[in-house]
Every structure is written in C-alpha cells, then in structure tokens.
Computed example of a mutant assay.
Amino acid sequence: MSDPRSPADTLDPASPSKRTLLLSMAGALAVAVVVTFAAVLPAEYNKDPLGLGRATGLSRLWAPKEEVVTADAGAPAARREASGFRTDVFEIPLAADGDEGRKNALEFKVRLPKGGTMLYSWQAEGLAVPEDLMFDFHGHTVAAEAKGAVQVADYEKGNGSQANGALSAPVDGIHGWYFRNRSDRPIKVRLKLSGFYQLVPSGEEGNLANIQPAGAAQPGP
C-alpha cells in the first residue's frame, strides 16, 4: 500500500529550510563585516571607518613598529646655538666684465661656528646667460685667528644663475661665496640667508666690499 503523504510531509521538521539557512549565512557575514570594521581594522591597522575604534578604545591598541635611531657621534642631532636665529636679504652688485675697478667680482661671507647651520638661496638678476656668472661657495678659518695653518672647506664651484641649499659648517670661521660676473652688463645677486650666523663687519675679511642687509634683520626669539 502506497504512502499517501506528500514529499514535503516526509521532511524532518527539525531541519532548517533553505530560506533560514540563507538568512543565517547573511547574518553571520554581516557580523563578520562589523567585527572587521569595528575591531580588527582599528586595533591592527589603525583604520577606523566607522568611528567605533575611538569610541570603544580599540584604536589605542594599534602602534607602529619602532626602530631606535642613534645620532652620529660626529654630528649631533640636536644642539644649542650661541647666537639667535636670523634672516637677512643681501643685494650684491657686480659690474660688467672688464670693469677697470675690477668690481665685477667680490667675496661675501658670514661667520658660523663649527657645526652651525645656515639655509641659503640666491639668484642673479639681469643675467642673460647663466654660464656668465661664476661662483665659488667655500669657508675657512680666519687668518688672524688661526693657530697654525688656515683650514679651508670647499662646498661648490660652478656657473649658473641661482642656487638653494643648506650648510652645516665644518670649521669655525667665515663661510660664503665668491662671485664673478663675466657678462657684458652689470648684474645683481640677490642672496637670502637664514640660520645661526653672524654678519662680518664691513672692511673685514669676508666683507671687504661692505655688503649690508637690504632690509632690517629678522632675528628669531
């Protein structure tokens, strides 16, 4: 005798339906997404798109790996300076090449202690051909103060219309530029300095041409 019950009636009433399984899987996926965004990302990767990491404090668990860096014994990472920080702009006039007074070339320097720092930026105004301006960036101890031989440090030599950079003085002395204009017209070099330097008095070695700041000095606090 055949079983009159339909196939649906033969299913185990305790087995979940396909719809229930799908809903359960969707719920589990949603929970996993929330846990990832709310806990894993803030704690492990410092990412907090939902803002829950900050609210729950989990974002404080994240920290980058640390590497200890030691300063070079010959170049300390931090130092105190005897003079205050200052900024000056200088306008250095250079006559045309062949000037009888040889005013187409001059030297301008400032005083820096050993290890003292200075930022610089200069540009030649009125120069048609950049190669017509020769420069020699160097420093040396002052002859009158030297105990023995004068120490000289060469930084950069070349031709061009501008330069930007920084200097950490290798010797206690005067540091700066020798400029020579080889063009057939007068030019002006506009030099901006910032750092822990001191001006060389007019008429002394390093400032025989009596170059003074174009504007008032801007010392730091």
Rank of each mutant, 00 (worst) to 15 (best):
D72P: 10
N104G: 02
R190G: 07
I211P: 02
F137R: 08
A216Y: 00
G220P: 08
T10P: 03
I92G: 05
A217D: 03
D72A: 11
N207F: 07
K103M: 01
V171S: 13
S121G: 15
E145G: 09
A217M: 07
P93M: 02
A149M: 14
Q123A: 13
A38Y: 03
P213S: 02
Q198R: 14
P64V: 14
A28S: 11
S6F: 07
G116D: 08
P201K: 01
T36R: 05
F196D: 04
K47H: 14
E205I: 09
E156L: 14
L127H: 01
N207Y: 12
A209Q: 01
R111E: 11
I187E: 00
M134T: 15
A32Y: 09
G195T: 10
L199K: 09
G206F: 10
A28R: 04
R79A: 10
S183C: 01
G203L: 00
T87K: 14
L21Y: 04
E131W: 05
P201D: 06
P113H: 05
T117I: 09
A55I: 10
D184Q: 11
Y155Q: 01
V34K: 09
G27P: 09
A43H: 12
A28G: 14
S121Q: 13
A38I: 06
L191P: 03
W62A: 05
Q123V: 14
G165E: 02
F85C: 06
S161K: 04
A149F: 15
A214V: 05
H175L: 05
G139P: 10
L167D: 00
P7F: 03
L50R: 11
A146D: 12
A75N: 14
W62N: 07
G173A: 13
L112I: 03
R190D: 08
L52C: 04
P130N: 15
A14Y: 11
P170T: 15
K109T: 10
I187P: 00
G74T: 13
A32I: 14
E107Q: 09
A124S: 13
V40S: 07
L61S: 13
P76Q: 04
V40R: 06
Y120K: 02
P170W: 08
W62I: 04
V129S: 15
A71T: 06
D97F: 05
Q198V: 08
D48S: 13
Q218W: 09
K157D: 15
N164A: 13
V150W: 13
F179T: 00
G53Q: 12
F90A: 09
R190N: 03
D184L: 12
E81Q: 04
R190Y: 00
G203W: 08
V142W: 06
T56P: 10
P213F: 04
A146I: 03
D12F: 11
W177G: 04
R180V: 07
E145D: 15
N164Y: 09
L133W: 01
L50K: 01
S24T: 14
S17H: 02
A128V: 11
L193G: 06
Q198T: 15
A163F: 06
P221G: 05
I92C: 05
L11N: 02
K47P: 00
H140F: 12
A144K: 05
A169V: 08
E125R: 00
